[in-house]
Amino acid sequence: MENIMFKNNSGKVKCLLASLILFYTVQSASALDTIRLVPWGPKLIDFIDLYVGEENGYFKEAGIKIEQLRGAGAGDAVRNIVAGNGDIAMADPLSAFFAIQAGAELEGFYCPYTKNWMTLMVNKTKGIKSPADLRGKTIAINSMGSTTRYYLMVLLGRHGMTESDVTEVATGLDFASSLVSGRADAASAWESMNWGMLVAGGIPKNQVSDFEVWPYADIIPGPNDVYFAKPEWLNKNRVLVQRFIRALEKSKRFVQARPDEAAKIGQRYAIGADSLVRNRAVIDMRVKMQNSGPGVVENGMGWCDVDAISNLANDSFKNGILNKKMNVSKIISNRFIK
């Protein structure tokens, strides 16, 4: 009889413990503050700091849950913030400027990757030896609302041309097929995409020598990626943003110190990240980007260089890319940088 009572009580205790564990798990999850983060693309290895922050619990320790949403280019990421579908966008400055000149209120508050890694890959066999030779050519871009398009506009403007002087084709991430098939004569892309095309076999080995890479950094030094949010949201969530940045920087330091481990973490989170060799290559690029670029050495990780961004804005206005002058010192802040 006592054994039966003990078993019954034991079962009740186990049920009670299970209920308590579930309760506290739910309570713990609900206690996290959610940040809806919209990068310029899907879950690529390029956003390795976000995955390490989640895997190692840095965001959770800071009381944060990151909800990573997908942007179809930087311009689309910004549009999601303006529409209220996200809290923070990762985008290039021009994407924000286009939204601001249309009436949006945005503030760039942190630059996770400051060195510009955007490029134009040209097919030399199509007679392209200088920017002037782009006239009349077809150029692949990620989307019509992407950095790949906007930086191409800057390059064209610098050499007396506009988009009407070229044909743009939106290919998504599949730049290689357009180049190999001859559908495009050049591709406005970025370094990790170039690695996939020139090193990993996206472009056949016997054709690799046909292509040349022109870095946009020669005319746009950076920053490449800026975190933008509505000023109202930032003012309301100052402490949350500070916690986010501290956790993010902890993740960035881990990626830099232990890149091979980060590459394995990337396999579990990013799409198309099966190759540790490619993951490590992209991570090396990203580490370089977060430690170099205008103002970073002097002011630290995450610094947004107002002078460099102002030069981009002024140049874009002069060449007709922007139809309004931008007061960059009122758009870009470093108020969360210690």
Rank of each mutant, 00 (worst) to 15 (best):
A263Q: 03
T34L: 08
W233C: 03
D218R: 05
S188M: 13
M161Y: 06
S181F: 10
T34I: 14
G293F: 06
V277F: 01
V166I: 14
E67F: 02
S310G: 00
I219W: 07
V226E: 02
S130G: 02
F211G: 01
F6I: 15
F228K: 06
N291H: 13
W303C: 03
G41V: 08
V166E: 04
E232V: 08
E67T: 06
P39Q: 01
N8Q: 12
K252R: 11
S251M: 09
I332Q: 01
R158P: 00
M326K: 07
I309G: 00
G295P: 09
R149T: 10
G157Q: 13
G300C: 04
A140I: 08
K65Q: 14
D307I: 11
I337H: 04
N8V: 15
N224F: 08
E168S: 08
W303L: 02
A91T: 04
I309M: 13
K12V: 15
V38T: 12
K324C: 04
G293K: 07
D87F: 06
N206T: 06
N142Q: 14
K330D: 15
P42G: 15
F211Y: 15
I35E: 05
Y24N: 00
L198G: 04
T125W: 08
Y110M: 06
T162R: 06
A99W: 08
S143L: 10
F211D: 00
D305L: 12
L179V: 09
R268G: 00
P231E: 05
R280T: 13
S19K: 02
M326V: 14
N311K: 15
K14R: 11
Y216C: 00
A140R: 02
Y269D: 07
A263R: 07
G266S: 09
E249Q: 15
Q68M: 15
V306E: 02
G57R: 10
V226P: 00
E232H: 01
G53T: 11
Y151G: 00
E298L: 08
G222P: 09
V52Y: 04
S316E: 05
V180H: 03
R335C: 02
I4L: 11
T114R: 11
K124S: 07
I220E: 08
I45P: 01
Q242I: 02
S178I: 01
I139A: 01
K124I: 12
A217E: 15
F175K: 00
S251N: 03
S329T: 13
L173H: 05
G182I: 15
V208T: 13
S181N: 05
G266C: 09
D46Q: 08
S28D: 09
Y216A: 00
A77H: 04
V52A: 07
V52P: 02
P112C: 03
I66Q: 07
S292C: 05
N116D: 09
L50E: 06
E168R: 09
S146R: 08
K65I: 12
V122I: 15
A273P: 12
